[in-house]
């Protein structure tokens, strides 16, 4: 049975942030509101959604960088809690969105990459440490002579590679990639995405790939989860989601993908959503998407649809579709 056990199993994860407005008026921002998914060994799950829908918070709460309000995360069958998170730090890593603020400007590259090695005592002597750092730099496509330089001497793409090398230093089995390419220009994006794929093939790492660029996610992932206002509205295999989205939000999101071929683009029907995203402080009752949904009915205002199985591993949270 252990072979079929997912590597990461997230169950009903919730992350609420208290927000003060006024003197005594305390409100709760539901950044992540009951998210469940699983990721198998060596698999990539893409997580898409518009800005502010809680993608990043899912990634960070998953790693207990934020204390989850409720819900459970199982890693390799073991429950991850605040107390035992230390054991899992070696297996779960994160690559950040902003390659500029995610590297300490006062540390050399070898110190940045060597820090996880220092923390987990992964070497016996200085020479071993230097060798491992050189090995990691080569692995992510950097020159091992760069180790003595400071992070500000590198370009965005190179810095992102340093961030990846740091995440890889502890030989993790799972990496949260928090929009790792959105701060980079397109040519560098391709390089970084390819680096991620090569590493997956070589080392068998599982990814939670967070992005808002659907094409990148489609390219990277086997399965995709679509998020809207802190909830997963649809989850399924990448080709299903891209070619036949079911949830009205996924449909509009997919229809917004720019087409490289103008001939195909001309025949495409673009679904433009009306209205703004409701404030996560004042969530609409019932289905969070109903205020912008073309198919909204009475039922949508009454109750929030839960994810239901639609066969072929796809789950959709919608009353109507």
């Amino acid at each position: 049975m252990s072979e079929n056990r997912p590597l990461v199993d997230v169950r009903d994860l919730k992350e609420y942030f208290p927000v003060k407005s006024g003197m005594l008026n305390k409100m709760v921002l539901k950044a992540v509101d009951g998210v469940s998914f699983t990721i198998d060994k060596g698999e990539t799950l893409g997580l898409v959604g518009e800005s502010g829908c809680g993608k990043t918070t899912v990634g960070r709460t998953l790693l207990h960088l934020y204390k989850p309000t409720s819900g459970e995360v199982y890693f390799d069958g073991k429950l991850v809690t605040d107390k035992n998170i230390g054991e899992f730090r070696k297996d779960m890593q994160i690559v950040f969105q902003d390659p500029y603020s995610s590297l300490n400007p006062r540390m050399t590259v070898s110190d940045i990459i060597g820090e996880p090695l220092d923390i987990h005592h992964l070497y016996h002597n200085k020479k071993e440490r230097a060798e491992r750092i050189a090995e990691l730099l080569t692995l992510v496509g950097l020159n091992s002579e760069h180790a003595t330089r400071y992070a500000h001497e590198f370009s965005g793409g190179q810095r992102q590679r340093i961030g990846i090398a740091r995440a890889l230093a502890v030989n993790p089995r799972f990496i949260v990639c928090d929009e790792p390419v959105s701060a980079l220009d397109v040519s560098i994006q391709a390089q970084i995405v390819n680096t991620f794929e090569e590493l997956q093939q070589k080392l068998g790492i599982a990814y939670l790939f967070i992005a808002h660029d659907l094409l990148v996610v489609q390219h990277m992932s086997r399965r995709i989860a679509v998020m809207y206002l802190g909830k997963i509205v649809e989850i399924g295999s990448a080709s299903d989601i891209i070619n036949h989205p079911v949830h009205p939000y996924s449909q509009s999101l997919i229809s917004a993908i720019p087409m490289p071929d103008p001939e195909t683009a001309r025949h495409k029907h673009r679904i433009i959503l009306e209205g703004d995203v409701p404030s996560p402080l004042r969530m609409p009752k019932g289905c969070p998407f109903r205020t912008r949904c073309r198919f909204a009915t009475e039922q949508c205002a009454q109750s929030c649809p839960s994810l239901t199985d639609r066969g072929n591993g796809r789950q959709v949270a919608c009353h109507n579709m």
Partner: peptide, 10 residues
């Protein structure tokens, strides 16, 4: 984020 990264490293 580098402080967060350090926390993620343990």
């Amino acid at each position: 984020e580098y402080v967060l990264a350090a926390r993620a490293m343990g």
